[in-house]
Computed example of a mutant assay.
Amino acid sequence: MITVIEQAVQARLVASAPKLESIPVTLCYDQADPFAVRMAFPAPATLEGVEVSWSFARELLEAGLVRAAGHGDVRVRPYGAGHTVVEFHAPEGVAIVLMESEDLRRFLDRSFTVVPAGVEHLYLDVDHSLAELMRGSC
């Protein structure tokens, strides 16, 4: 049974410091963290020159394909015909990434085969999470 989905997609940094127009982005979904998706950006696309990953709600990505969603560090919204904008807000600034909506839909569809929407809670390991949280407290 597949428990992790990874998908490479092309993205375009709308406002980027380096002259990098199109970059490979890796989307990841892991059954062990059923509410989240992760986007990993390669080192050449970041200000620090190291790979950077952002994790955020799978539900946010799904909602952002049809309407503006998010009010915090990550915001997602449709853009024109067939594109989606993902904004990442950090103290260093804002990164605006333009992606093909179909790539994101395909990724989400694959993630829903691993953990269907609405039953994410069934895949949480609460005992393990509590043990990790309490590990250094005694």
Rank of each mutant, 00 (worst) to 15 (best):
F88M: 07
V37T: 02
L13E: 09
A131C: 10
R38N: 12
V119A: 05
P24I: 01
S101H: 05
H128D: 11
A63R: 05
V119D: 13
H71F: 12
M1G: 13
Y123C: 12
M134W: 06
V4F: 07
M99R: 07
R110N: 04
A117P: 02
A11H: 01
E120W: 13
T84C: 15
L20R: 12
K19D: 13
D109H: 01
A131Q: 13
R67T: 15
A63C: 05
S16M: 03
A81K: 06
V86H: 15
S101F: 11
E102D: 14
C138E: 15
V52H: 02
E102G: 04
F56E: 01
L27G: 04
F112L: 04
V119S: 07
V25E: 04
S16L: 01
M1K: 11
A90P: 04
L61F: 00
A43R: 02
V119W: 07
F112W: 01
V50P: 00
P91H: 08
Y123S: 03
S22M: 10
S129L: 15
P18L: 02
E51C: 00
E21H: 07
E92T: 11
P91W: 10
G118E: 00
E59I: 10
G118S: 00
G49V: 05
Q10F: 06
V37K: 00
F107M: 09
Y123T: 01
R67G: 04
L104P: 04
G70P: 14
D73G: 14
K19L: 14
R77M: 11
P116A: 01
V115M: 14
